[in-house]
């Protein structure tokens, strides 16, 4: 298996949209989806930056709310509606409130809030910016391995491989889907798969594998939560 690094020729706007995620969404126009994505991404990045730079942890915790709302919007765009609801309920409803409780409980003095930003922190900042910049640049322009069908498909999805370079049958199937969504039963996937796709991300489509295929991990998560609750009680109990 070899990694073929190829730079991408500048394509037209249509070519860019041909293999994008957005055209296969249900009901939302691609431009609108892009707009909502940019809005939610900007909200997430801005609030995350504010969270890690705020001096007062109360402001950080309050700013977690727009962050989680942006994440839930992204999850909804990615057709994970149940996860979006869980994000709001568990993160926005439970974890955020627990953090706020603890901050109120330990009652920080103003001198505890001092946070010096010295050379090391700025150096860390520069290194991380370099890493992320290189990663984003790689996503934007570098090649991905496209040997097998999965690699080809992901390469198309990411946009480094045009559909006509892959198997033309797959590209035709993808394009047929791009045009008519999940309504036309003519293309390659079986009807059962299509039905699963239409309900993807709902409670039912997650619940069935969660209680069959992933039952043991699910039970283990329950055990983990029990142990964590017991541990938290033991740790925070005042010594007699």
């Amino acid at each position: 298996m070899f990694y073929l690094i190829r730079t991408q020729e500048a394509g037209t706007k249509d070519e860019v949209h041909d293999n994008s995620v957005s055209e296969r969404a249900r009901g939302v126009a691609p431009a609108m989806e892009d707009f909502v994505f940019l809005l939610a991404a900007g909200l997430c990045v801005l609030s995350a930056c504010a969270i890690v730079t705020c001096k007062n942890p109360v402001y950080s915790v309050i700013l977690m709310l727009p962050f989680f709302l942006g994440m839930a919007t992204l999850f909804t765009l990615l057709q994970a509606s149940f996860l979006a609801a869980m994000e709001i309920m568990v993160y926005g409803g439970a974890i955020l409130v627990v953090f706020l409780f603890v901050i109120m409980l330990i009652n920080l003095r103003p001198e505890d809030l001092k946070d010096d930003f010295n050379f090391a922190t700025y150096f860390t900042y520069v290194v991380l910016c370099g890493l992320v910049g290189g990663m984003i640049l790689s996503f934007a322009r570098a090649g991905v391995p496209h040997d097998g069908p999965l690699e080809k498909a992901f390469a198309q999805e990411i946009g480094v491989l045009q559909p006509d370079e892959a198997a033309p049958k797959e590209a035709a199937a993808a394009e047929g889907e791009a045009q008519d969504g999940a309504s036309k039963p003519a293309a390659a996937p079986a009807p059962a798969q299509r039905k699963g796709r239409a309900a993807f991300g709902s409670v039912g489509s997650l619940g069935v594998p969660l209680f069959t295929q992933f039952m043991i991990p699910f039970e283990l998560i329950g055990l983990l939560l029990t142990v964590a609750i017991l541990g938290a009680m033991v740790l925070s109990k005042k010594k007699a």
Binding site: Q8, A10, G11, K13, V16, H17, S20, V21, S22, P30, E33, D34, V36, F37, L38, A41, C44, V45, A48, C49, V52, L74, L77, L78, L128, C129, L131, V132, M135, I136, F139, A140, R141, F154, E157, I158, G159
Partner: peptide, 24 residues
């Protein structure tokens, strides 16, 4: 072209956003 790739809703842009948030 690459900027358009990153500013449209697709897998690469989601991964880039995830990487940026992870780094923050």
């Amino acid at each position: 072209h690459w900027l358009g790739n990153l500013l449209t809703f697709r897998l690469a842009s989601c991964l880039a956003l995830a990487g940026a948030l992870f780094a923050i």
